[in-house]
Simulated assay, not measured.
Amino acid sequence: MRVAIVGAGAVGRSIAGELLENGHTVMLIEKDGRKVRTRSVPGAEWVQADACEVSSLEEAQLATCDVVVAATGDDKANLVVSLLAKTEFAVNRVVARVKDPRNEWLYTEAWGVDVAVSTPRVLAALVEEAVTVGDVVRLMSFRKGAANLVEITLGDDTPWVGHPLREVPLPRETVLTAILRGDRVVTPSPDEPLESGDELLFVSHGETEEELQYVFAPGGPGSAGA
């Protein structure tokens, strides 16, 4: 996969390093010549250019990229890059960093953003995920809530513990993608029994999260006598 990362600050370089380790091809685009440090990410292609200019992106052949990551520290620049990547170069996937959480509402499909990543929101979600049992915790949103990655940890009193997955009445537009069980990642199958302490990861429509909460809540459809 070919990935263009706009912004070669600490965030952009870190993303580039991770992607290179995973075998992807990475192009770093940075306007500020002082931040063009090729030795810091030697496996990446470096381009010094203003990514808010169409001509610069044409020279960088952005249309050949599968994914664009707008990772600068400027929300305005990230939005412009996202819009150009999607509308002018038809990039399939655009991921944008939200610097100021107050601007998160702007990061929508209208600006070409497929996934918006707000560090404060992600950290808050991870804190909730670590300490919350029995509640649906939203970890990440895709396409501004049209689909969300959510997690629920099963407690001893959670309905469906001991039941196979095929018996669980999941809401519409909700897919169980993985079960985290101790240090294992379990692939969901219809006959897989649920255990207390399981962390269930779902991709779910935003409108069905309350239904998902009810399914696993004490007194819900999995409770005796419900």
Rank of each mutant, 00 (worst) to 15 (best):
residue 161 V to Q: 00
residue 147 A to P: 11
residue 94 V to D: 03
residue 155 G to S: 02
residue 111 W to L: 08
residue 103 N to Q: 10
residue 144 K to S: 15
residue 8 A to W: 03
residue 12 G to N: 13
residue 156 D to Y: 02
residue 12 G to H: 07
residue 110 A to R: 14
residue 7 G to V: 02
residue 2 R to D: 15
residue 163 H to C: 08
residue 56 S to H: 10
residue 49 A to V: 07
residue 37 R to T: 08
residue 44 A to F: 01
residue 194 L to K: 03
residue 155 G to F: 03
residue 43 G to T: 06
residue 127 V to K: 08
residue 67 V to C: 11
residue 1 M to L: 14
residue 181 R to H: 11
residue 218 P to F: 00
residue 186 V to W: 03
residue 57 L to M: 07
residue 126 L to T: 11
residue 123 L to C: 13
residue 128 E to G: 14
residue 56 S to T: 13
residue 132 T to N: 14
residue 185 V to S: 05
residue 88 E to H: 01
residue 189 S to W: 07
residue 67 V to A: 11
residue 127 V to L: 12
residue 43 G to Y: 09
residue 154 L to C: 02
residue 89 F to G: 01
residue 164 P to V: 03
residue 134 G to F: 00
residue 87 T to W: 07
residue 215 V to S: 06
residue 9 G to K: 05
residue 219 G to A: 08
residue 75 D to M: 12
residue 78 N to K: 13
residue 156 D to M: 04
residue 65 C to Y: 01
residue 140 M to N: 12
residue 175 V to E: 06
residue 190 P to Y: 11
residue 190 P to K: 12
residue 185 V to N: 10
residue 71 A to D: 11
residue 201 L to C: 00
residue 140 M to R: 15
residue 185 V to F: 07
residue 42 P to C: 04
residue 71 A to I: 14
residue 18 E to H: 13
residue 222 G to L: 07
residue 13 R to T: 15
residue 37 R to Q: 09
residue 101 P to Q: 09
residue 226 A to I: 05
residue 14 S to Y: 15
residue 111 W to P: 05
residue 124 A to K: 05
residue 218 P to S: 09
residue 112 G to A: 12
residue 199 E to F: 08
residue 220 G to A: 06
residue 136 V to K: 07
residue 50 D to V: 05
residue 152 I to A: 03
residue 136 V to S: 04
residue 77 A to F: 03
residue 129 E to W: 02
residue 177 T to A: 11
residue 219 G to S: 10
residue 134 G to W: 01
residue 142 F to N: 12
residue 137 V to I: 13
residue 1 M to F: 13
residue 221 P to W: 01
residue 212 L to R: 02
residue 95 V to P: 11
residue 179 I to P: 00
residue 136 V to Q: 06
residue 201 L to G: 00
residue 164 P to Q: 05
residue 190 P to A: 10
residue 17 G to K: 06
residue 202 F to A: 00
residue 13 R to A: 15
residue 223 S to H: 06
residue 31 K to Q: 11
residue 208 T to E: 10
residue 143 R to D: 13
residue 5 I to M: 12
residue 101 P to V: 09
